[in-house]
Design a protein around this nucleic acid. Sequence first.
DNA 1: CTATTAAGTTATAGTAACTCGAAGATGGTT
DNA 2: AACCATCTTCGAGTTACTATAACTTAATAG
Lengths: 143, 143
Amino acid sequence: MATYSVQQVAKKTGLTTYTVRYYHDHGLLPFVQRDKNNNRVFSDSDIEWLEMVTCLRSTGMPLDQIKNYTNLVVEGEDTVPERYQIMLDQQKRTINEIKELQQHLATIKFKVDHYAEIMENHEPDSFEPSNIHEKESLKTEAK
Amino acid sequence: MATYSVQQVAKKTGLTTYTVRYYHDHGLLPFVQRDKNNNRVFSDSDIEWLEMVTCLRSTGMPLDQIKNYTNLVVEGEDTVPERYQIMLDQQKRTINEIKELQQHLATIKFKVDHYAEIMENHEPDSFEPSNIHEKESLKTEAK
DNA sequence: CTATTAAGTTATAGTAACTCGAAGATGGTT
DNA sequence: AACCATCTTCGAGTTACTATAACTTAATAG
């Protein structure tokens, strides 16, 4: 069976060795072993689980909640309903998060287009009604 | 002209008063005034700018970079090309972030469906090949 | 006209989730 | 034997809030 060092795991997951150790120290990787030198030894399933942790983390779940979820998984089948609820909530939150990001993206796009236009037309300081927004709504006091 | 207190701004933007003050103290709201009592006085354009800050923050830009962008806006038209580049980068990063979130969402959906199935079928501990993944890839050592 | 309440202020401390550096152990190579 | 890479722990630093304490001021209630 394949085993991996911290560094190999870091490389495989895209995390830093610091983060991998941090997660392990905080109980998020409950089955990671140690060799006779006290070095962490990761299995393939540890890496898969770490990827699940990363998935939850990236979608905004705090570490203590991920820890809680980890404990439930370790406890076994009895906790499936609770786990189901956790994942359902996380799904909702992620869908919401994506929606919000898409709205923010629209705002950013607007800015990009606006700047592109200014640079093309090369107009220094217009008197159009859109002027306030052109100036990022920052200079209403410059009267 | 309409003016607002910290609390009103907090309510309008969905931020806490702590965060609004924090942003102001760190130079992200350069045109906020003070009244004779030293209380912060926000204008409509301050709120609009704060919403821009929130947009950038929510899409992952660190505060010091937002501060830098703020300074560029204050400096005026000459900085438009630099600002254009910043926004273009942010746009790219946000598009990427959304993509990643959508992938994570797919993973979460998979879990939700999986748990739903377990709960429906009520099978305690199957011997199927998918067993490892059913158990969140955590118990390969429990042999 | 004082008393209490509400809201503002600053300064400082606490928290989450990393992020890093120091000091030391071990194992392999020249 | 010396060196280098890689591991370890521990403690400190960073970012972006988040909360508390101590204080000031303005408005209302008795």
